[in-house]
């Protein structure tokens, strides 16, 4: 029996367990949740040889500082992250998409995400956590999921079970690229907006504000004017929906979004661009580009093929 655990010396800003999300619960108000950046989550698990939906630790901006106690494990970190491995007599500067060995007493210091928001830590083996509604995703607002529905906190222990350190260390050459435009399909209330605002929506730049989290991304820019009604009868929403409340500033619904909303929907971000969207930190500029359904479907296929191709290149 393997007895290992992480001691949380510093929890980081928003560190939670996540997996591929929680299905079939929108009708009772429970959001999908899951890893914000699916590709990086997938690659993190693939590099340490885990199942595709194994829970990983997601962090935002500043990550955790963890001390390993017990038996040796392997881990890797994905995203665009600065991290160090602190051993008794040396410090190793870590590279993303490369697995490393961590021994009893070693510390893993995930200092920051660079020009991005989220990163993932996967270990070979699994954490000792329980699924809720078939998912290991934590939703801190509704207190659902592992760790009693809470963020990972200072001084807690994260138990590791069935640690698998036998796999040789592996690596992938990959660099996250920034996205030029966020592609969107017109929303169901697109025609609520003035002719000028419809044009501005696709012509002007919007910036990501600090009021952005796992629930939503608030944007600022030229105000979008609504000619019909600034409220609609509340109805279901999905991630990627861009709602515009009466103040004229768009809000993009992200993975922990409320399941029902009453603001007009001007657009919906396509599935293929979601991972790149969520990685835009506050202050980033966004430009929307209109796209039709058929092209969006094709782009999603390409996105998936690219992910699979990356997985196959792990050596």
């Amino acid at each position: 029996m393997n007895e290992s655990y992480f001691e949380v010396i510093r929890p980081g800003i928003n560190t939670t367990f996540q997996d591929l999300g929680r299905k079939n619960l929108y009708h009772i108000g429970v959001p999908f949740s899951g890893a914000m950046d699916n590709r990086n989550y997938t690659l993190a698990n693939a590099i340490v040889g885990n199942k595709i939906n194994a829970p990983a630790i997601e962090f935002a901006f500043q990550g955790p500082l963890l001390k390993l106690r017990g038996e040796t494990i392997i881990f890797n970190i994905t995203g665009n992250i600065t991290f160090n491995i602190l051993k008794k007599n040396k410090t190793i500067e870590g590279n993303c998409y490369q697995s490393y060995i961590l021994e009893d007493g070693d510390e893993l210091d995930i200092a920051s995400t660079n020009n991005s928001v989220y990163g993932y830590l996967a270990i070979g083996g699994s954490f000792d956590i329980e699924a809720q509604w078939d998912s290991f995703s934590t939703n801190i607002k509704a207190k659902i999921g592992p760790n009693d529905g809470k963020k990972i906190e200072k001084d807690q222990m994260i138990k590791i079970i069935s640690a698998n350190s036998k796999t040789s260390t592996r690596k992938l050459d990959y660099l996250n690229t920034k996205i030029e435009n966020i592609r969107v399909i017109k929303g169901t209330n697109f025609n609520y907006f003035s002719a000028e605002s419809k044009k501005n929506f696709f012509d002007k730049e919007f910036s990501v504000t600090k009021l952005s989290d796992r629930m939503g991304m608030r944007l600022e820019g030229i105000k979008l004017k609504n000619d019909v009604d600034t409220n609609i009868k509340s109805e279901g929403i999905i991630k990627g929906v861009i709602q515009v409340p009466s103040d004229g500033n768009p809000i993009i619904m992200l993975s922990d979004h409320g399941t029902i909303g009453g603001y007009p929907k001007i657009g919906v971000v396509i599935s293929a661009d979601y991972d790149k969207l969520v990685q835009l930190p506050p202050g980033s500029k966004i430009k929307f580009k209109e796209i039709d359904l058929a092209s969006a479907e094709l782009l999603f296929k390409l996105y998936q093929m690219e992910t699979m191709n990356l997985v196959s290149k792990i050596k």
């Binding site: 299905k23 079939n24 619960l25 929108y26 009708h27 999908f32 009868k233 509340s234 109805e235 279901g236 929403i237 999905i238 399941t259 029902i260 599935s271 359904l293 479907e297 999603f300 998936q304």
Partner: peptide
């Protein structure tokens, strides 16, 4: 199908784009 959301007068059916299409 990954989620079905009934509301007053609408029904939103979300799905996994890798398994089906609109």
């Amino acid at each position: 199908i990954t989620n079905i959301t009934p509301s007053y007068n609408k029904l939103i059916i979300s799905f996994d784009l890798s398994l089906t299409k609109f």
